[in-house]
């Protein structure tokens, strides 16, 4: 498990006016490891995801992906380096079919994207990647459905499938279980566990059972800062974490 980190941050900070949403955060993500980030609402977890994916530029600090500083790069360039993300609020192409959602995602990696006069369906490799991603996410039977018609849980699965279709090495999953029923959740937990074997995964999640079921490493954020980070059991036992977060509410 002790692979070198594929991504690490140094003193990562983001301010919005007077509010410091992410303050001096150090975190590292490794291949084959699921790193869960937990914390109360407003702790800065989503902002952290947005900084790593390039949706927001950091105010200061560095983000080293494979030893290259990617802080402040645009989302599409970060995506192309192999960083895939899912969104907390479902963010898909609702008018398109499920397969087309994934086909587009796969196409983003294709070198022939600018061939303007060939029919899109002719690129079988893209369709194959898209189908494989759907299979993995458990949506293969729904491929021809319009995305807007999917159930909430299925849309969450599609969100992940699109991410997978870009063949990322690092996955940023922002509350993938949000609003899911019990059976759907269980499926998703299995999927995340499987993805953790050959990807680096950062998982933001409120469902503590799921977090402790899959995470090999755990970081607790409070008020934009890292309160504690380490092996899940050690973090769970930490008095600071007990009083600040896990203690109440669970």
């Amino acid at each position: 498990m002790a692979a070198e980190p594929i991504l690490r941050t140094e003193a990562l900070t983001r301010r919005f006016g007077g509010l410091t949403a992410v303050n001096d955060v150090r975190i590292d993500l490794r291949m084959g490891e699921i790193h869960a980030v937990i914390g109360p609402n407003g702790a800065g977890k989503s902002t952290l995801t947005n900084l790593l994916s390039g949706d927001l530029p950091p105010t200061s600090g560095r983000i080293l992906f494979r030893d290259r500083d990617i802080a402040g790069r645009t989302p599409h360039r970060i995506s192309r380096l192999g960083v895939g993300r899912s969104y907390q609020k479902t963010n898909i192409f609702k008018p398109f079919t499920v397969l087309e959602n994934c086909r587009l995602a796969a196409q983003s990696r294709a070198p022939h994207a600018l061939r303007i006069l060939s029919r899109a369906e002719r690129f079988r490799d893209l369709a194959r990647n898209a189908e494989a991603a759907l299979e993995l996410a458990g949506l293969a039977q729904r491929a021809d459905e319009i995305a807007a018609n999917l159930s909430h849980g299925e849309q969450r699965q599609l969100e992940i499938a699109m991410c997978l279709a870009t063949a990322p090495t690092l996955l940023l999953l922002d509350e993938p279980l949000a609003g899911m029923g019990a059976t759907e959740s269980a499926r998703m937990v299995e999927l995340i566990r499987a993805l953790g074997r050959d990807h680096a995964v950062m998982l933001i999640e409120h469902d503590m059972d799921a977090v402790f079921a899959v995470a090999q490493r755990l970081t607790v954020m409070v008020n934009g800062e890292v309160l504690e980070s380490g092996m899940p059991e050690a973090v769970r036992a930490s008095p600071a974490v007990q009083s600040a977060y896990l203690g109440h509410g669970e």
């Binding site: 994916s53 599409h76 995506s79 963010n91 192409f93 609702k94 398109f96 087309e100 600018l114």
Partner: peptide, 25 residues
């Protein structure tokens, strides 16, 4: 009907998502 055209349709439907999928929109 080409991949380029599909990408344009994606941009029309949800440009921000296209960017995060790696398209230089």
């Amino acid at each position: 009907g080409s991949p380029f055209g599909r990408a344009l349709a994606g941009i029309r439907a949800n440009e921000q998502r296209m960017r995060s999928l790696g398209f230089p929109t």
